[in-house]
């Protein structure tokens, strides 16, 4: 079961054709054929804004987009988000692994980059560290329009070019996402209390 965890325009027909079983939409979407989660992007200039935005939201998946190092540190230490879309470096990426926060690699960053070679180099660095410290990696299309959506095999190839093995690239499209989906299921049933605590 493959997931695309960052979509802004939802098109059920194309997504099914591209081989996805579930998506996380940063907007409104409903589907009978696909599993749909609601995500929210968080942009923050200072730590207080970040804390307020994270507490107020009721989204299933929280993604911190393009934060500076200070924001990355606050979000990771306080475990405020589920994923970070940035080029995270050494001490923080290790802490991300401990707190189970995913490193989100967006294909759209590469697709619409002015310097794709530089972007790939930075992504490769982050992935190398993430592999070393066993931080969860999530590869997403990051599509803002339906024409920016990409298929599962293209995203797997993207992962492989970035330095992942084939099974690791496949896992980047499903493992962490399935955990989030299960958490969402538990939340709906009222069994989820907080990370590590659930009703039995």
């Amino acid at each position: 079961m493959f997931w695309d965890f960052w979509i802004e325009e939802f098109d059920e027909k194309i997504l099914l054709n591209l081989g996805f079983h579930g998506v996380c939409v940063f907007g409104d979407a409903q589907s009978k054929k696909l599993f749909v989660l609601k995500g929210e992007k968080i942009f923050a200039k200072n730590s207080e804004e970040l804390k307020i935005k994270c507490k107020r939201t009721k989204a299933d998946f929280l993604l911190l987009v393009k934060p500076n190092v200070k924001m990355q540190r606050v979000a990771i230490k306080r475990c405020l988000v589920d994923g970070i879309n940035a080029f995270v470096k050494y001490p923080l990426i290790k802490e991300m692994a401990e707190k189970n926060i995913a490193l989100v690699i967006s294909f759209n960053d590469f697709l619409n980059s002015k310097e794709p070679t530089k972007t790939i180099a930075l992504m490769k660095d982050s992935i190398k560290l993430a592999k070393k410290y066993k931080t969860p990696i999530v590869i997403v299309s990051g599509a803002k329009t339906k024409w920016e959506l990409r298929g599962t095999s293209e995203l797997i190839a993207f992962g492989e070019v970035l330095g992942l093995k084939r099974n690791e690239a496949k896992a980047a499209l499903r493992e962490f996402q399935e955990k989030i989906f299960e958490r969402q299921k538990l939340k709906k049933q009222g069994k989820y209390i907080m990370p590590g605590v659930r009703k039995v």
């Binding site: 054709n17 294909f107 697709l111 024409w147 293209e154």
Partner: peptide, 24 residues
């Protein structure tokens, strides 16, 4: 070059100003 070609195919956004997706 299979994987690299797949990536390059995904990198194609439009042809003659017509938007498209190439799906392997």
């Amino acid at each position: 070059y299979v994987q690299k070609t797949k990536l390059a195919m995904a990198y194609v956004k439009e042809i003659n100003k017509k938007k498209l997706i190439i799906k392997t």
